[in-house]
């Protein structure tokens, strides 16, 4: 796999959140999903910057939806995984599983 195509940790989390949310994956829902499941309080700007990066790698695709009054009359940008995105998630999972294999959790305390 070329170096530029590998996923960062946060990119992987965002991809998984998009996958979980399915049709309702937009910036704030992705942010909330990550916060609820990992306890990380991430900024909305960071989420959109990551989604933009993933879109430029063609792992997700964004689509505009109509403006709604509860959003102050502003439109929403929903994202969904592309075929390449689904492949990237699967590959990442396999790599992690492979690295985890044989390790016993919880790990003993490291000694100096």
């Amino acid at each position: 796999m070329p170096k530029g195509e590998s996923l960062g940790e946060f990119e992987y989390l965002v991809l998984l959140a998009v996958l979980r949310l399915d049709a309702d994956a937009y910036g704030m829902r992705v942010r909330r999903e990550i916060a609820e499941r990992t306890g990380r309080d991430v900024a909305i700007g960071a989420v959109y910057a990551t989604l933009d990066r993933l879109e430029s790698k063609r792992l997700v695709k964004g689509e505009w939806s109509d403006p709604t009054p509860e959003r102050g009359g502003r439109a929403k940008r929903r994202f969904h995984l592309t075929g390449a995105g689904a492949e990237a998630v699967t590959r990442e999972r396999q790599e992690l599983a492979s690295m985890m294999e044989g390790l016993v959790f919880p790990l003993p305390r490291a000694t100096r």
């Binding site: 937009y26 959109y48 403006p67 509860e70 959003r71 102050g72 502003r74 439109a75 929403k76």
Partner: peptide, 15 residues
């Protein structure tokens, strides 16, 4: 472009 959906998201969560 970004102002449109980021401001919308923040407004929704703010409410």
């Amino acid at each position: 472009d970004q102002a449109e959906f980021v401001a919308g998201d923040l407004h929704e969560e703010f409410v």
